[in-house]
Amino acid sequence: MTGQQSSGDPRRFLDEGRLRRSPRRWRDKQAVTRYLATLAMPHLLEPLTERELTDRLADLADDPVGLRRAMVDLGLVSRTRDGAEYWRTERTEHDETSDAAATAQRVLGEDR
């Protein structure tokens, strides 16, 4: 893309690569959260500690805890009952196909 993002591009809500405020419209909030989840957790099912995830999100948003909560609420990310560990469970439109295939092979044990 050349310098400008289309109206459907979630990056239009970022200021110098950071989310300063969550968009007002629900559809836009979902789009931005899906995009940032993919950036912060590029590999499906890769476990991260709460601190690791929060640190990654702090690089992307002014409210990393709120963003983490939104990712869980949308079902993009799961966590252990005590909240000590998180992992992304949903593939988004921002994932590369090759990453999804590699994850499937790793999870299914087909990389023999």
Rank of each mutant, 00 (worst) to 15 (best):
D95I: 03
E46L: 00
P10E: 00
L48K: 01
L57F: 07
D95L: 02
V72E: 11
L60H: 03
D63Y: 09
A37M: 03
V65L: 13
D62Y: 11
D82I: 05
R79P: 08
G109P: 02
Y35M: 03
L53A: 05
P10K: 02
S6D: 04
R20G: 01
A102N: 02
D63Q: 10
A31S: 14
R106F: 02
T92C: 03
A40L: 07
E96C: 10
Q4I: 14
D9R: 03
T49M: 06
L14D: 01
Q105P: 03
R68E: 11
P10A: 00
R106A: 01
R11G: 00
D63P: 01
T80V: 04
D111A: 14
V65C: 02
L108Q: 05
L76M: 08
E52R: 07
T89P: 01
R106K: 08
E90Y: 06
R12V: 03
R81S: 12
R106T: 02
G3F: 11
R68M: 12
G17F: 05
R91M: 10
R51G: 08
D95T: 01
D55G: 08
P42E: 05
R88Y: 08
W87V: 02
A100K: 06
D63F: 08
T54A: 09
T80R: 11
K29S: 12
D111E: 14
T2D: 14
E50N: 14
T92F: 06
L48S: 00
M71H: 08
G17S: 09
T54I: 09
T97W: 14
A37L: 04
P42D: 00
A58G: 09
T92W: 07
D59H: 07
L60T: 04
L14C: 02
G83N: 11
Q4G: 12
A84F: 04
E52H: 02
D111H: 14
Q30V: 15
P10V: 00
T89I: 11
E90G: 02
D62S: 12
A61S: 14
H94M: 04
R56T: 05
Q5K: 11
D111W: 11
S6P: 06
R34V: 07
R69Q: 14
D111T: 12
A31D: 06
R81C: 01
W26D: 13
V77I: 06
R91I: 10
L48Q: 10
Q30G: 12
H94Q: 10
R24W: 12
Y35P: 07
S78M: 12
A31P: 02
A84K: 10
L36H: 03
P23S: 13
G83S: 10
F13M: 09
M71V: 07
G66P: 01
Y86M: 05
W87E: 10
Q4W: 13
T2Q: 13
D63S: 08
S78R: 15
S98I: 12
R106I: 00
R18L: 10
R12W: 07
L39K: 13
L45F: 15
T38G: 05
G3Y: 11
D28E: 15
E93I: 10
A61F: 08
E16I: 11
T49A: 03
R106G: 04
T103M: 08
Q30P: 01
R51F: 09
M41C: 13
E16L: 14
